[in-house]
Design a protein around this nucleic acid. Sequence first.
DNA 1: CTAAAGATGTCCT
DNA 2: GGACATCTTTAGA
Length: 203
Amino acid sequence: MPRYFDGSSPSIPLARSFYERHTVRVAKELLGKVLVRRLGSTELKGMIVEAEAYRGQDDPASHAYVGRTERNEVMFGQPGHGYVYFTYGMHYCLNVTTEPIGQAGAVLIRAAQPVKGIEVMKKKRGTDRIRDLTNGPAKLTQAFAVTGALNGHDLTTVDKLFIAENDKPEAFHIASTSRIGIRAGLDRPWRFFIKGNRFVSKK
DNA sequence: CTAAAGATGTCCT
DNA sequence: GGACATCTTTAGA
């Protein structure tokens, strides 16, 4: 059995059933998984190290709290799709949709550890500092060239963007805190990250 | 290292 | 019109 250390082994997208579950559970289980971006012949990979759960009408911090709107439509749709929104006038953030159809839910991918395509990421981010490539939700979308064009994109095929199992998993501990950058719903510890990982956005 | 402030477009009331 | 699931730069310790 060959061993890979450069993230070059083939990747298979996580099945829709992975996403069609309680959002908080999906958020936790996305830690350690590998985000894969395909840009023509270029492939970028990063291990997810931080994620936040956002639910629906029961979650005051969620975009879906107010009910179905044009922007949050994808959150109510089929699980396993990308929900990409634009914020602060200049940044995109990447989420993956969860829960059965009709029930809103999404997990914000906040940070990743670069695995493959690091030189490309440096160029897209305009910095050589590896730690600054993907240690935040908008940095990550910039490094992975994720924009609104990928809103609603199906993540269960190998086209353009998906999430796969980790080829070389290592043991880790999960820590949780309140979600970042929100005003409501601070009582819910729905931000999860890999303890001690250097690519987590904040300590 | 931390803190403060500015940049900037879209959504929703 | 206000808020925003953020990042960068600058100033100072």
